[in-house]
Amino acid sequence: MYAKVFKRLLDIIFSIILMPLFLILFVIVGIAIKLEDGGPIFYYGERLGRHGKPFKMYKFRSMKVNAPDWRLEDGSTYNAEDDPRQTRIGKVLRKTSIDEIPQLLNVLKGEMSFIGPRPDLPEHINCYNTNEMKKLEVLPGISGYNQAYYRNFASWKQRLENDVYYVENISFVLDVRIFFKTIERIALKRDVYLDFKSNSLEVVNSNVQHKKS
């Protein structure tokens, strides 16, 4: 009952309550982004939604316009503190997770939930095994089990295993635990970036670029 009814109801209520925060940040962050390089305020990334249906996920743009899409060997996104693709305001947005706030719009539209597996790129569906496909049974989340407990320090396959664990154990209590753990991670700025000096992952450059719209 919680997963099918009350979870969505809570998403709607809290996204409406938090909408004034989004509007305030839109003005402040929007001006900061425009003053830095004059580029678009938002980044729209196509992601896999529930049942594998693609949707556009909203974020405040933290990368330079037309920045290349860098990936690691396991297919996950390159994420480092000294990433030259980030704008100055983008570094602040990423460290504080403010860049994720526009996803309130995705929640209100029913494309995402506050808590759930983080959405993958559409092409990643071809890499899932039968068990990993379970992550598509629920709405993707702004935060989730991985982000709360591992953030960026789990391989892509480990994240999929954790996503399946969440789907198989979804409950109000688990969502509350993930919510408060996420707040702790953000407040303490833990594990925001990967430390490439201490792990063996290599960066594989992609020709894909961040779109302007």
Score class of each variant (00 low, 15 high):
V92Y: 11
L48R: 00
K135A: 09
I24D: 00
A3S: 13
V203C: 09
N205P: 14
I17K: 08
I183G: 09
Q209G: 05
K4S: 13
F180E: 09
I170A: 04
R50V: 03
K34I: 10
S155T: 15
G144E: 01
V65E: 13
Y44C: 14
T96R: 01
E73S: 14
K134A: 11
K7P: 00
G110S: 06
Y43L: 14
N152Q: 11
I31M: 10
V192E: 05
L9T: 13
N199M: 15
G90H: 04
I125M: 12
F14M: 11
W156E: 10
K189V: 10
N106W: 02
L10A: 12
G144T: 01
K189T: 10
I186M: 07
A187I: 14
S143P: 03
Y145L: 12
G141M: 01
M133K: 13
P68F: 05
Q103L: 06
G49V: 02
S171A: 02
Q103I: 05
P119F: 02
E168P: 00
F26I: 05
D74L: 10
P68I: 03
V92C: 08
G110R: 03
G52I: 03
E137A: 11
L160S: 04
F14V: 10
M57D: 01
R118G: 04
K157G: 03
G30A: 07
K64V: 10
L23F: 02
E184S: 15
L35S: 09
Q147I: 04
T87V: 05
K56I: 03
E202T: 15
R190T: 10
Y150R: 14
M1E: 13
N207Q: 12
E161H: 04
L21T: 08
I101R: 00
S97F: 09
N131D: 14
N207E: 13
I24Q: 01
E81T: 06
K4P: 01
I17Y: 04
N79P: 02
L18A: 11
Y149I: 07
L104M: 09
K157N: 13
V203Y: 06
K34W: 13
M112A: 02
F6P: 00
N129W: 09
F60E: 03
V203F: 07
Y128M: 08
K211A: 10
L174V: 05
I98C: 02
A187F: 11
P54R: 05
E46W: 07
F26M: 10
I115K: 03
V65S: 12
N146C: 15
D69Y: 13
K34A: 10
M63S: 04
G45D: 10
N146T: 15
Y166S: 00
V204I: 14
M19F: 13
K56Y: 12
M112R: 04
I41S: 05
S62Y: 05
E132A: 06
V107E: 02
Y149W: 09
K134C: 03
S97C: 12
K212I: 12
P54Q: 06
R85H: 07
M1R: 14
N131K: 15
S200Y: 12
N131F: 11
S97M: 08
V173C: 08
L139K: 09
F55A: 05
D175E: 02
Y2N: 00
L21C: 08
T182D: 04
S213L: 12
D74I: 06
I125S: 12
L9N: 07
K64E: 08
Q209P: 01
N66P: 07
H210A: 11
E81Q: 11
K64Y: 09
R190N: 13
F22K: 00
Y150A: 15
D175I: 01
R151Y: 07
V204E: 09
K7H: 02
P84G: 01
